[in-house]
Design a binder for these strands. Structure first.
Lengths: 148, 148
DNA sequence: AAACAATATTTGTATATACAAATGTATGGT
DNA sequence: ACCATACATTTGTATATACAAATATTGTTT
């Protein structure tokens, strides 16, 4: 991926600006591949993230705030993400009896099934995206990302 | 920025998956800062990108396809981005006389003014975002990004 | 020249997201 | 108990984006 080719410029871009453009281009590319990978399963990246968080709960329900604080999206949209998953029977939602302001969300076996199906494909996809990296370079890359 | 802290997990994440999550988190952070920086000027990141492409044309008009191929967004949305800029008098749009299917878009002096105003602030912002990087590390980071 | 294909852009629509306000519930002070 | 405040979530709304179809113009074929 060459930045100058993609944005079609012949001018020299300052290193700082180039880095941030580069980052965005790479992120877009990765997102496109991810969305396309999930498309056959009818879920978006964010819906997938919610499902994984719920699976991580290992049968304990999660309330909306818990889900939300582990994601990048805003609270109001987390509600709507759960709505979508609910419509597909991938989660169940009920009001918490101890504190009726809260809602308890749990992944269903149908939701777990679809996640398990995706797991293998996702690992393949990740390997493909990162095939040009050595383990050493991946670690190095993560170290650099930590500087942001 | 520690990935495990942000997504609040205690589990070991496989290096490949961790890398892609890390990338997304960093990109989100950078985008947030950029949007916030542009907010006082009333333009979005994408609108800003269009303006810069137009400035790069150095008085020659650009048609929609030209703008679009230098951006990540889809054609139909480029139309709407230009609509927004038109409403702010940052660009003018007219039908190309040689080929009436095409439209010619040019940045106005008002558009140039706002870009010039933003230039300095943007450089400051970039420095701030990348303050923990040495020049050497930035180059290294770009080399790694090229592997995607 | 009429018909068809190719090109350039726009419009319609569904989904996604950000931000502010509204709703419903619980808690602490008086 | 009453009231203000805090908390948890939802709803409303504007903007952003993806995808498909529609429109308008030009180029090509017969």
């Amino acid at each position: 991926m060459n930045v100058e080719d993609i944005i079609r410029t012949r001018k020299e871009i300052p290193l700082e600006a180039r880095t941030l453009i580069h980052l965005t281009l790479v992120n877009n590319k990765v997102n496109e591949i991810m969305s396309a990978t999930l498309k056959p399963f009818g879920i978006s990246i964010q819906q997938f993230n919610v499902l994984r968080i719920l699976r991580g709960q290992e049968n304990r329900p999660a309330n909306l705030s818990t889900i939300n604080e582990r994601m990048v999206t805003k609270m109001s949209n987390t509600t709507r993400l759960v709505d979508k998953l609910l419509a597909k029977d991938y989660v169940i939602r009920k009001i918490c009896p101890q504190n009726r302001r809260k809602v308890e969300i749990k992944i269903t076996s149908k939701g777990l099934d679809v996640l398990n199906e995706i797991d293998g494909i996702k690992i393949e996809m990740e390997k493909k995206i990162l095939k040009k990296f050595t383990k050493r370079q991946l670690k190095e890359f993560n170290v650099l990302l930590d500087k942001f």
